[in-house]
Design a binder for these strands. Structure first.
Length: 464
RNA sequence: GGCCCCAUCGUCUAGUGGCCUAGGACGGCAGGUUCUCAUCCUGUUAACAGCGGUUCGAGUCCGCUUGGGGUCACCA
């Protein structure tokens, strides 16, 4: 049974787009193998906890359509899925490690640790805990009995080669001497990530640990833990980290990183996911646009490249435009309605949608193009004060139009350009700005038909 | 800095020793369609980081160099 998971920590306002990428891969892998996709909330850092973050993360994942099988809000047989509710579990396993001498108590103060680190750095050594407490566990236990605060540390063995296989990167080797005696249980009774992740992945029967490359270097510590417990190793796969245009790790300083931001801008979930799928992976037939279903079918973890791709919002925009254009018109209208909170005139949206659908890259482009249908222009991008004669003639001709249809309007105006010997381009630009206030608009004749005769004449008259 | 990962057009990538005078997509540029803006169509631009090997033959395998990234917390 394939069981994958993502383990977000509720320390930001939403799920990070990089985590959404990891979620997509985990989700797709589970789906492909008819397995389960799990969300576990890793809230062991009480200091950085952000209120409402967990709910928001779950909500955003749902909005993107990555349905999950087990989590804090829907439960599951391996709960709780919130680590802060599993403290006794971690305690139990920490005790087991101590019994097995794979871990030990440490009562060193933060000051001692800081001094140690400073001294090591001064001598250009690797900053590492010196196992000071390991050599005097009896005394340490006495201190703890008296109430001294303590942590539990991993007892990293000396001079051991730790090897593991990564589905994406192949065999990875590292010497244990490069590893620090990582804190496993903090003095506040909470586990650190390293203990919690191993215990939970085991208890929740996670088959594939698919996570970002930033975890690669701590994987050997996790291997040590799996071994100490005598548990079988899950399969590891470290996906590349998404990058800023300058190639550093994708960060909110340099890019919008909250997954819901893209939705708020009017990117379609399917388009974002399609774009994300193309990060480090390509469709076997080189397709750029494909459905999630198709992705699940043809996707394979081993085909993911290990180099970190730059997130290119320009290409995302293009792709989103493709998705918008492909939408059946009724769906398009529905999305526009929803996007603007169902507050706009539905009828007007229905009338204008075919005019703008192929001109939009994001749902938010709708208002840029269509505002003049809803509101009279407040300003004019071209100075029309010297064009009153022409505007007057336009008004005269248009007022005589009986059948107020785009064709008829167009014909009438074409006739006028000839009669007045004005260049069509210039003529229509003046008319356009008179109607829309802007130099850019949907097709003019159709727009005027939608605005209605009376409104068009009013807008012209205002300028006379 | 130590350790680990990585390296094809500006960007996303195809390429698994001969089919590569390196293909596609985004972007850019030029042109066509057009009353604006888009769409659409056509053309074009631009890359195997460097150096050594291995081999009849290397973008593809190996090594080194360089470059980039990650990680070195009682954060995840």
């Amino acid at each position: 049974m394939v069981r994958t998971r993502i383990a977000p920590s509720p320390t930001g306002e939403d799920i990070h787009i990089g985590n959404l990428y990891t979620a997509l891969i985990n989700w797709a892998w589970a789906k492909k193998h008819k397995g389960k996709f799990i969300i576990r909330i890793e809230d062991t850092d009480q200091e950085r906890l952000v209120k409402g973050s967990e709910e928001k993360i779950l909500q955003t994942i749902k909005e993107y359509g990555l349905n999950y099988d087990e989590s804090t809000d829907i439960g599951g047989q391996y709960g709780s899925y919130r680590q802060s509710e599993r403290l006794s579990v971690y305690k139990k396993y920490a005790d087991e490690l101590i019994k097995k001498k794979a871990a030990y108590y440490c009562t060193c103060t933060k000051e001692r640790l800081a001094e140690l680190r400073a001294a090591q750095q001064k001598q250009k050594q690797i900053p590492k805990y010196d196992k000071h407490c390991l050599t005097k566990q009896k005394e340490v236990k006495e201190e703890i009995k008296k109430g001294k605060s303590y942590v539990v540390r991993l007892n990293v063995p000396n001079n051991r080669e730790i090897k593991f296989n990564d589905l994406i990167r192949g065999e990875i080797k590292i010497m244990s001497d490069n590893l620090d005696d990582q804190v496993l249980m903090k003095s506040d009774g909470f586990p650190t990530y390293h203990l919690a992740v191993v215990v939970d992945d085991y208890l929740m029967k996670i088959s594939h640990i698919i996570r970002a490359e930033e975890w690669l270097s701590s994987t050997p510590k996790h291997i040590l833990l799996f071994e100490a417990f005598g548990w079988d190793l899950p399969i590891f796969a470290h996906v590349p980290i998404l990058r800023n245009p300058d190639r550093s790790k994708l960060s909110k300083r340099k890019n919008p990183v909250w997954a819901s931001w893209y939705l708020k801008q009017g990117y379609l979930p399917e388009a974002v996911l399609n774009y994300l799928a193309l990060m480090g992976w390509s469709h076997p037939e080189q397709k750029e646009i494909f459905s999630l279903d198709e992705f699940v079918k043809v996707f394979d973890l081993k085909d993911i490249k290990s180099s970190g791709p730059a997130f290119d919002i320009v290409k995302l925009e293009w792709m989103n435009g493709q998705y918008i254009r492909k939408l059946p018109i009724s769906n398009f209208q529905l999305l526009i309605n929803n996007f603007y909170g169902n507050k706009l005139d539905r009828d007007l949206i229905a009338k204008t949608s075919s005019l703008v659908q192929e001109r939009m890259k994001k749902l938010s482009d709708y208002m840029f193009l269509c505002e003049f249908f809803f509101n009279k222009p407040e300003g004019y991008e071209i100075d029309l004060s010297g064009k009153k004669d022409l505007l007057k003639k336009m008004h005269e001709s248009l007022s005589k139009v009986v059948d107020w249809k785009a064709d008829e309007i167009g014909k009438t105006m074409q006739d006028l350009t000839k009669k007045e010997e004005v260049k069509a381009g210039e003529f229509f630009m003046i008319l356009r700005v008179a109607m829309a206030g802007k130099k850019i608009s949907p097709p003019l004749n159709d727009s005027m038909e939608i605005l209605g005769k009376e409104e068009c004449l009013t807008r012209l008259k205002k300028l006379l």
